[in-house]
């Protein structure tokens, strides 16, 4: 059951992620990315991270990606123009990428043996209560700092979005 769920949503995630990269139109990429995020949310649930799963949907899929789509619609961004100038990427991009993926997979397979397994309900420490408790005790300072960061980001976005600024 867990394997089936994992395989289904991992498959969806990978296909959608490939779609993000392959699609030429930004909005198609964006919709695919929402698919990746949605399936990741399911995988988070499988890993016992229920709060993170919901936050993933609310924050990433529900807010960040809406912003993306909003901007794409606002700029009426069309399909991208093939006008590359980076010789380096053309020559080295694909080999580097394959090397990166190969190395990452190699390390993962080597470091993490197969006997540690995941099953639904194996970890229940990811409830909203547990996260809230950690957030307001151990991680209080980062939490405050990050709220400040958000404030700065809001101000930055407002300043950048002002009409007078050219």
């Amino acid at each position: 059951m867990d394997v089936v769920l994992f395989l289904i949503f991992a498959f969806i995630a990978v296909v959608a992620a490939i779609n993000v990269v392959v699609q030429t139109h930004p909005i198609a990429s964006a919709v695919s990315l929402i698919g990746v995020m949605g399936s990741l949310a399911i995988l988070y649930l499988l890993l016992g991270a229920e709060f993170i799963a919901v936050a993933q949907v609310i924050v990433y899929a529900g807010a960040v990606m809406v912003l993306f789509i909003f901007v794409i619609m606002l700029l009426n961004a069309g399909a991208e123009v093939k006008r590359g100038r980076s010789l380096l990427v053309q020559l080295l991009g694909a080999p580097l990428l394959i090397a990166l993926l190969g190395l990452l997979a190699y390390f993962v397979q080597r470091i993490f043996p197969r006997n540690v397994t995941v099953h639904f309900g194996g970890f229940t420490g990811g409830s909203a209560q547990a996260i809230g408790r950690a957030l307001f005790t151990t991680y209080l300072l980062p939490f405050e700092v990050i709220s400040l960061l958000i404030l700065i980001a809001i101000l930055g976005a407002i300043v950048l979005g002002r009409k007078e600024l050219d």
Partner: peptide, 18 residues
């Protein structure tokens, strides 16, 4: 019926590479 933890990490690596 249980998923090896390395599968998740491999999925993560694949997504990262993408």
């Amino acid at each position: 019926t249980q998923v090896p933890i390395s599968w998740f990490l491999t999925l993560s690596a694949v997504l990262f590479a993408l």
